[in-house]
Amino acid sequence: MLVLAGCSSTPAELAYSPESALLAYPQALTLDKQLIGQPVRWSGLIVASRVKADHTEIELVYLPLRSNGIPQQQEQSPGRFLVHVTGLLDPQLYAAGRSFSVLGTLKQWQSGQIGEQPYQFPVVDAQRYKLWPKLKEVEVRYVRDPFDDWLWPPRP
């Protein structure tokens, strides 16, 4: 049992106890001001990174976390959120399309836009975070053996 727990555990930089105290992303969409200061562990795909005077702001499309802390790739998302990280994170490394996970607290909601649509972004004040390695796509091709029909009788 310990072996299985070790295989699916969250990375140390994203660990939080008790996990039941973490605020779920859909709860933050209610814009309930009583949620400010609650701990969160969210993840997603980076849309943009913007360097501000004293922090870096990362805009993400929310994706649910797998048990190992990696964002689960899928075609649907309930929304977006912003992460504020103290200091400079290079936008070339924290670039659009990269997977990112954060552990922090819900700081506020910030008005903004997605395209021309107004949007209320939940803002996370990051305490710890992880930029996941780029996924490498592997192309798999099936090559049919040209002698398959010659060596073996035809299949029914």
Rank of each mutant, 00 (worst) to 15 (best):
P146G: 04
G44Q: 06
L35P: 00
L2A: 13
A28N: 04
I46F: 12
P156T: 14
L63K: 11
F100D: 02
L106W: 00
S20A: 15
L135R: 15
A15E: 14
D54Y: 09
P91F: 03
L63F: 11
F100I: 04
S99A: 14
T86C: 05
A28H: 01
A53S: 13
A48Y: 11
E75R: 14
K52H: 08
Q108R: 13
R144C: 10
L103S: 03
L93D: 11
S67G: 07
L89Y: 09
A48F: 13
Y129Q: 07
R141W: 12
K33G: 04
G104V: 02
P26L: 05
Y129A: 05
E139L: 14
A28M: 04
F81A: 01
A21D: 04
S17K: 11
P64C: 04
I46L: 15
A12E: 10
L88T: 15
D148I: 11
C7S: 14
R66Y: 07
K134T: 10
E139D: 13
G87C: 09
G6Q: 12
L103N: 03
A28K: 02
S20V: 11
D149W: 11
P18N: 07
Q92S: 09
V61G: 06
P64V: 03
L14I: 03
A24K: 02
D32V: 02
Q34I: 05
G97F: 08
P64M: 06
Q113H: 14
S67D: 12
R128E: 08
L31D: 07
Q108K: 12
P64R: 05
R80G: 06
F147M: 07
G79F: 03
G87S: 08
L23C: 04
L82M: 07
P11D: 04
A21N: 08
L65T: 02
R144N: 08
S49G: 10
V85Q: 02
A15R: 13
R128P: 04
S99V: 14
S43W: 02
E137H: 13
L82D: 01
I36C: 00
D149L: 15
H84C: 10
A126Y: 00
I36A: 01
I46T: 08
S101W: 01
W150M: 14
V51M: 10
A21K: 06
D145P: 08
P156V: 13
R80D: 08
K107N: 07
Y94N: 06
Y142E: 15
L4M: 15
H84L: 11
L4H: 09
F121T: 00
L82F: 04
S67R: 09
I36K: 00
P153Y: 06
V83Q: 01
A48C: 11
L131D: 02
D148H: 09
P18K: 02
D54E: 10
D149M: 10
Y25D: 00
G115I: 06
Q72L: 06
N68V: 12
L63M: 09
R50C: 08
H55A: 09
Y16S: 04
P39R: 01
Y142T: 15
R144L: 12
W152M: 15
Y129L: 08
P64I: 05
G69A: 08
Y119R: 06
W150C: 07
S43Q: 07
L45Y: 15
Q108N: 12
G37S: 05
A12Y: 13
Q108M: 13
K33A: 09
P26G: 03
R66M: 12
P154C: 11
P39D: 01
F100E: 02
L22R: 01
S43N: 10
L35D: 00
L89F: 13
L151N: 15
